[in-house]
């Protein structure tokens, strides 16, 4: 499996990169971790005439929490997220997620920015970011803008990034007290995409009722799905069995999976229900521990 020939560009700055991308337009693909792009190129499912390697651009790899926001540079590798003490201690949903992406070797190259910008509905970070209510920062030839993640995924493998724009940072609101999250993914084996996966993030009030809930779904639709009705159904309620079951049913109803070798539509929809229940329980347990 040999990729087709291409012209290689390695811009040394964001300005160079955005200028180059603006000039090359559709002809160019951005090479970040390369763990999705290069396999596609080897299979010749993607044969871009130009490849813009952004790995040489300094200052795009960091994890820092400040001013109520966890800011993550787009070039941060999954393994760096996995090893981050801040992420492990304060963002369990994100920690859960980066541990189940592909396999440990792939995670040494794969980047969080690539995982989001590739916009594969089977990727894991999109649902997690939807549940966390993150923002992404896009940088283009004419400057920088912030987009809420909920408006980022516009279609399968499509995002709101304009031609010439690069995703440079992901911003996650720091968790309030009594917050917790969890990611539950059913995969056929390590390295597989999810048959279905659910990201849940909860903030509880002091009486145990739900202050805020984020629920989003992986690989059960043409885009990652934010299960808005399920989220709404939880607000102000205590997480008893009936409440969780109701939210799980609503999340399942929000899913729009297609049948494939991983399973039937009915199976995947039911998996969403089961995994939502489990993710909510785990999220609540974690929230409860972080008073």
């Amino acid at each position: 499996m040999i990729p087709a020939a291409f012209e290689y560009h390695a811009p040394a700055s964001l300005d160079d990169a955005t200028a180059l991308l603006a000039r090359l337009g559709e002809e160019a693909k951005i090479l970040s971790g390369g763990q999705s792009l290069i396999p596609l190129m080897k299979l010749r499912l993607s044969s871009p005439p130009h490849v813009v390697d952004i790995n040489g651009i300094p200052g795009l790899s960091y994890i820092r929490e400040a001013d109520g926001v966890l800011a993550i540079g787009a070039l941060t590798r999954e393994s760096e997220l996995e090893e981050s003490e801040i992420v492990r201690a304060r963002y369990p949903l994100l920690h859960d997620t980066c541990k189940v992406i592909a396999d440990p070797l792939v995670r040494n190259l794969a980047t969080i920015g690539g995982n989001l910008a590739h916009a594969d509905p089977a990727n894991d970070h999109p649902a997690t970011m939807l549940a966390l209510g993150a923002e992404v920062v896009a940088r283009g030839p004419s400057g920088q803008r912030r987009l809420p993640i909920a408006s980022f995924f516009t279609g399968p493998f499509e995002t709101a990034l304009a031609p010439g724009e690069l995703l440079v940072e992901i911003r996650i609101p720091a968790p309030a007290a009594r917050s917790g999250g969890a990611y539950f993914k059913l995969e056929r084996k390590v390295g597989d995409f999810a048959t279905a996966a659910v990201a849940a993030q909860l903030t509880l009030r002091s009486d145990g009722a739900v202050e805020q809930a984020g629920i989003a779904l992986t690989n059960v639709g043409l885009t990652p799905i934010k299960a808005v009705q399920a989220e709404t159904s939880l607000r102000g309620k205590r997480l008893d069995d009936a409440t969780i079951a109701q939210a799980a049913r609503l999340a399942s109803a929000a899913s729009e999976p297609a049948a494939d070798l991983r399973g039937s539509v009915a199976y995947k929809k039911d998996l969403v229900r089961v995994l939502t229940g489990r993710a909510l329980r785990k999220a609540a347990e974690r929230a409860d521990r972080r008073r």
Binding site: L186, R188, T195, G263, S264, Y267, D270, G277
Partner: peptide, 16 residues
């Protein structure tokens, strides 16, 4: 596979 077992379980009325 999980999908096959799930199908059998649901046919037999077993669910979580």
């Amino acid at each position: 596979t999980p999908a096959k077992v799930w199908k059998v379980l649901r046919e037999k009325g077993v669910t979580e």
